[in-house]
Amino acid sequence: MRQNLYGLMAEFAKSEELLRAAQGAYQAGYRKMDAYSPSQVDGVAEAIGFTKTRVPLVVLIGGIIGAVTGYGMQYYSAVRDYPLNVGGRPLHSWPAFVPITFEFTVLFAAFAALIGMLAMNRLPNPYHPVFNTPEFRLASQTRFFLCLEASDTQFDLQSTRHFLESLGPLAIHEVEL
């Protein structure tokens, strides 16, 4: 097998073809693969074996940390660190602490969504082997791609190419490392 090969990539014109190809490849036993599309295609991520994302969990944790931080900051500063009697109001006047607690919750959760999504996607990542294929420019415009990666145990240049051809793609590209 060639050393500098990242994988074989099939190019499709329609989202349904990509979905069928992804399902077919998974059934044929391929595991290390990825599908690329200009906008989200429902079901493709599941078809290549990616069924669950932990983004919601990260956002939940971010929100909880935000709520605790927001309330804790107000409690600590107004009750512990610098108790100040303003018009006889209780030091721990919790209803007045609600708005900022809410804002902190939303702010931290939003940052968790942004950073969590990017980190789990390993972005920013300006270089990736798939970009070596000139036709891949179309993956952000009109075309759909399925890439079977060479690191898959089942990958074999000849048989994998045959398999991809059986899916009826527009073209098959060799992706170099």
Binding site: Y36, V41, A113, N121, L123, F136
Partner: peptide, 23 residues
């Protein structure tokens, strides 16, 4: 950021986007 439209990325992207809308 090197976005390449990977199916995994899209799934996380949409989860994050919907949650941001909810927030």
């Amino acid at each position: 950021l090197g976005w390449r439209g990977s199916a995994r990325h899209w799934k996380r992207f949409h989860a994050a986007y919907l949650l941001l809308a909810g927030l």
